[in-house]
Amino acid sequence: MTVPTKVPDTATQLLGKPHLRDEAIEAWLPLARHLAHRYAGRGEPTDDLVQTATVGLIKAIDRFDPGRGVDFAGYAIPTIIGEIKRHFRDRTWSVRVPRRLQELRLAITEANATLTHSLGRSPTVADVATHLGVTEEDVLEGLEGARAYNATSLSTPISADGSTSLGDTLGGEDSEFELAETRVALGPALATLDEREQQILTLRFYGNLTQSQIADRIGISQMHVSRLLARALTKMRGELREGL
């Protein structure tokens, strides 16, 4: 790759001379494209990476100051790479995670590549932590956060014949959860009833017997069953109101 040796000194020199700025951008585009292709294959379209790298190049041209003693390439390369990394950090996460974890994930990825080459094996969590100067807990947190980088579609087939998708395995709304608190309070409320009242309630609501059938079962009149049932329900309502 060949790149030009000169670039207009500062944004001030380019003011009123847009053709010089355009010529500088055009001349250094091979550098931007080269850096963009270094990050290809990581889930982002190459065209998007080239566009992002070009934005970084334009920022470098507009901000470059030769008075700092750095040649343009030495200034432009980290500026372009920084723009590409921000693109990955800010736009490619399926679930938003703290920026610290996004940056840590990138650092862990680079450390894995470096250590695999130098060690001749896959690095351990301890290896990565030592290389980055962080704790093993930080590395594990970064790896956990990296799971948010990609998401799986709910329409993804999970059965051999493709008839079942991931979304089919998700549970629906369960109205029974709304009754859970009431059921918890029901036990103590039921315990306040006497033995006959408990028996009548059990036969009526669990045995699904009519009041006449209950009367025949326990040997009292249907009217008496009705009174006892009403009294038991009134007691329980009062207990449930106090308990909820």
Rank of each mutant, 00 (worst) to 15 (best):
D65R: 15
I58S: 03
D48W: 13
E141D: 12
T92C: 13
Y75I: 05
T46D: 11
L31A: 02
V97M: 11
Q102H: 00
G120K: 01
P45I: 11
A76E: 11
E141R: 09
R99W: 07
G56P: 04
A24N: 05
Q102R: 14
G145P: 09
I84V: 15
V50E: 14
A60T: 09
I80T: 02
I81L: 10
G133K: 09
H87V: 01
Q51I: 07
F72S: 00
Q102T: 12
L143Y: 06
I84T: 01
L119I: 07
P98R: 03
Y149E: 12
V55A: 02
T79K: 08
L101C: 07
H87N: 10
E83L: 00
G133C: 05
I108S: 10
A113F: 09
E136P: 01
I25N: 05
E23Q: 13
A76L: 15
A53P: 02
G67M: 06
F64V: 01
L31K: 07
I108C: 05
E44G: 03
R63L: 04
Q51W: 13
D90K: 13
L31G: 00
R21E: 04
A24D: 02
A113H: 12
T52K: 14
L35A: 01
E23G: 05
L101Q: 11
F64N: 00
L35C: 06
A73G: 00
E110H: 10
G145W: 08
K85L: 09
G145V: 05
L132F: 01
E26V: 09
L115K: 06
V55F: 14
S122T: 11
D138C: 00
V139I: 15
G120A: 03
T135S: 10
A24P: 02
T52L: 11
I84A: 01
F64Y: 13
Q102A: 13
T124Y: 11
E44H: 02
R96Y: 02
R68S: 14
V70P: 03
E136I: 04
G69V: 06
G69Q: 09
L49I: 07
L101K: 06
A126V: 15
D48L: 13
P30I: 09
E103F: 04
A126S: 06
L57E: 09
A32M: 12
T116G: 15
L143H: 03
V125C: 04
I61V: 15
R86Y: 03
L29K: 12
I81M: 10
V134P: 04
I81F: 01
S118N: 10
D71M: 15
A146W: 06
R96E: 14
E136Q: 10
T116V: 04
K59V: 12
G43F: 01
A148V: 04
Y75W: 13
P78S: 09
L140F: 05
V128K: 00
D48R: 12
L29M: 14
G56I: 11
A73R: 14
A113I: 14
V128D: 01
L35R: 13
A146D: 12
D22C: 05
V55R: 12
A107P: 00
P66R: 13
A129D: 01
A27C: 05
I58K: 04
E44A: 14
L104V: 05
L132M: 04
L104N: 03
E23A: 11
T79G: 00
A36K: 09
